Simulated scan of single mutants.
Amino acid sequence: MRTSSGLVRGLGLAALLVLAACGGGPRAAQMEQSSSAASVIGPRFGAPQLPRFGDAHPVEWKGLSPMFHPVHGIDVSRYQTAIDWPMARANGVSFAFIKATEGGDRVDPAFAAHWRAAGEAGVARGAYHFHYWCGPASTQAAWFIANVPKERGAMPPVLDLEWNTASPTCATYRPAPEVVRTEVQTWLNTVGRHFDQTPIIYTTPDFWERNELWKLQGAEMWLRAVTRHPSEAYPDEDWTFWQYSGTGLVPGVQGPVDVNAFAGSEASWARWLGARAL
């Protein structure tokens, strides 16, 4: 039914339950890593580690816990003013999505510093753009391209799709779903061509449902679901990344931070990263 090109269809409830029944879970997934997977990650990124994260507002997961997934990361912006990237990596941060741009004329003031420091620490990183609905996608795509380096090893670019509730000009503007999808497709096509990457879409349950984002072509999904597994919050949707908390506590990061899980095992993370990194 859904046409997204994400990694898994909710990772498969039955498969995870079998894994748990066999004494599996994250530590069992660690054992899956093969020598070929390790060679794909290589010395720059190192092997993923199970996260040693806390949470300022922990959730009692009634369904599938984020800890079923062994590969975790963070997403950051100017609000994370101080990050010890080597410490964060040592405590389970395998990847980071870093805010780069907003609309057609704003650059996150911390982007350059976060981008450089994460790379130096060997954390796989990708840049994201926060979309404004009162400006054309073509302009925003050009702005992102102008401000984000095309670097070897970078993860795919990300388009953050939410309503602009804090914007003085865009806060109440809600284009029709077909207009939203047309604008999104323009950004995906333009940015994807430039970076030679299939972009990733980040979104929330209400935005995804209202705008029927499953109809889009040519993107992987990064889904926010802070009280439920994505298989519950986004029925039948394929996904690659799951943002499971906005109040994570990560050693090396000052204050709460968004935390995320990759859909697959350590071995599949190595394959995914090797196939998509520039």
Rank of each mutant, 00 (worst) to 15 (best):
E178A: 04
N91E: 07
L11H: 08
P58Q: 14
A88C: 07
W242C: 06
W239I: 01
K99L: 15
K62L: 06
T81N: 04
D236S: 12
M87T: 10
A142G: 02
A124T: 10
A127N: 09
A110M: 10
H229P: 03
P251G: 10
T169D: 02
F262I: 15
G92A: 09
T81V: 11
V180W: 00
G248I: 11
H229A: 05
S35R: 11
H69E: 02
A166E: 13
G248M: 10
L159C: 06
L273E: 06
P175R: 11
E178K: 00
I98K: 03
S77T: 13
W115M: 15
W222M: 15
E220V: 08
H131E: 11
S138T: 12
V184K: 00
A113K: 07
T182I: 11
T165Q: 03
A21V: 10
A37G: 14
P70T: 03
W143T: 10
A90T: 03
I200Y: 09
T182S: 08
A146S: 14
A142F: 00
L161D: 03
G274C: 03
A142P: 00
G73M: 12
P58D: 14
G92P: 06
R2K: 05
P230N: 05
P177D: 00
L223Y: 11
H114N: 07
I200K: 05
S36Q: 14
R228C: 01
L13M: 12
E266C: 08
T165N: 07
T3F: 00
